[in-house]
Write a protein that binds this DNA or RNA. Sequence first.
DNA 1: GCGTATCCTGAACGATGGTTCAATATGCGC
DNA 2: GCGCATATTGAACCATCGTTCAGGATACGC
Lengths: 211, 211
Amino acid sequence: MTRAALAAKAPEERRERIMLATIAVVRERGFAGTRVADIALEAGTSQGLVLYHFGSLAGALAACLTMLEDEFYDDFAQHLAAENGPVERLRFMAELAAGRGAAVGNWGLWLELWARALRDPDSRAVRESQDRRWRTVLRRVVDEGVADGSFSPSSAAKSVLRLAALMDGLAVQLALNEPGMTTRKFTELWWDSAVLELGITEPAKRGKTPR
Amino acid sequence: MTRAALAAKAPEERRERIMLATIAVVRERGFAGTRVADIALEAGTSQGLVLYHFGSLAGALAACLTMLEDEFYDDFAQHLAAENGPVERLRFMAELAAGRGAAVGNWGLWLELWARALRDPDSRAVRESQDRRWRTVLRRVVDEGVADGSFSPSSAAKSVLRLAALMDGLAVQLALNEPGMTTRKFTELWWDSAVLELGITEPAKRGKTPR
DNA sequence: GCGTATCCTGAACGATGGTTCAATATGCGC
DNA sequence: GCGCATATTGAACCATCGTTCAGGATACGC
């Protein structure tokens, strides 16, 4: 099996490996610093193959973008569904955004994506879609909380906008590891804001608030 | 005077012109897309001169960064001092950040700066200093308000952190002109948050909140 | 077994763009 | 006016990639 079997499922697997390599390199060097040669090296293939599969460096980067997007979202949606009520869900979102699960190490990528979105339509589309997804979920959780009486925002729409924006803003500090900003502080600050915005009374049960 | 005088003060003036050109080009093309040739063209000089004055493209970009920083801050501090009380000052900050004065067209640059700061120490330093300045001023205004009874935050430090972060987050949307995000909405959303955070009772007098 | 389509490689090509440099101009003290 | 220091230029240089390409290997239908 060894040689033959490996080669057999190679094409698709190879393609995948290149995409993963692309993400890895972009994480390390950033979009601007990513070269075809780096990707090939990381993936253990030739430069030619990268171009063969994705047509151009830009193509590879684009593929990596959409992959990232889906990866993050799938992971997230799955875990969110496991939570019980709106308060727990909200708490989960706060913790996830701060750096649990698939978000780990991704904020840096988002920062780059934002900058890129200023000029590159593909990046803009990905960023927009990602953002919309996130806000939609947040909105749903808030509505759920309003329905069952846990939340009482003066305006759900505005609260969602602000809470989403606050996350982005806190994320900048986290990504640039501003002295004093930590995962815990991120969660705490955001959660306090959510309490204020939504008038949450019931304390969150999930996660170790302590310390 | 014409020819001679112009040439006389030329060196310094030329240098300045190159810096301004650099800012202009960076605004238009972004950091990554800025070439020495673009700067030279915009400044009406040769590529050689750009390198002569700043040593390298990176040097020119760095110079433009610090210039930007000072430019923004000076303009800002001057206007802020003109406002009367803490509520007015806060309101002024909300409006300025949303796009008045020197901030116009700068949010895109900030986004780029954040991304750059992930890897470039110079950019990181500028961003950090800029951020600290802004938060310091915000803190001062808040303290002032606490002192004269206009504000009553549960924690001044946390409120300042959150309000500053919220601005950055809203700025992302504004810079990428997310459909639905406008200068007015920016101000409105942020101001509502400030009211909530600081427990402001007195309505803001400044600025045309109306339509 | 044979031919064809898919995969894959490594080297070479070519464009782009930062940097160097020799030559020239300009202002300025003497 | 003479020279020296500072500015300024434009062209040439050269490193760095992205991309192309001609050639092989591999799988697969017939």
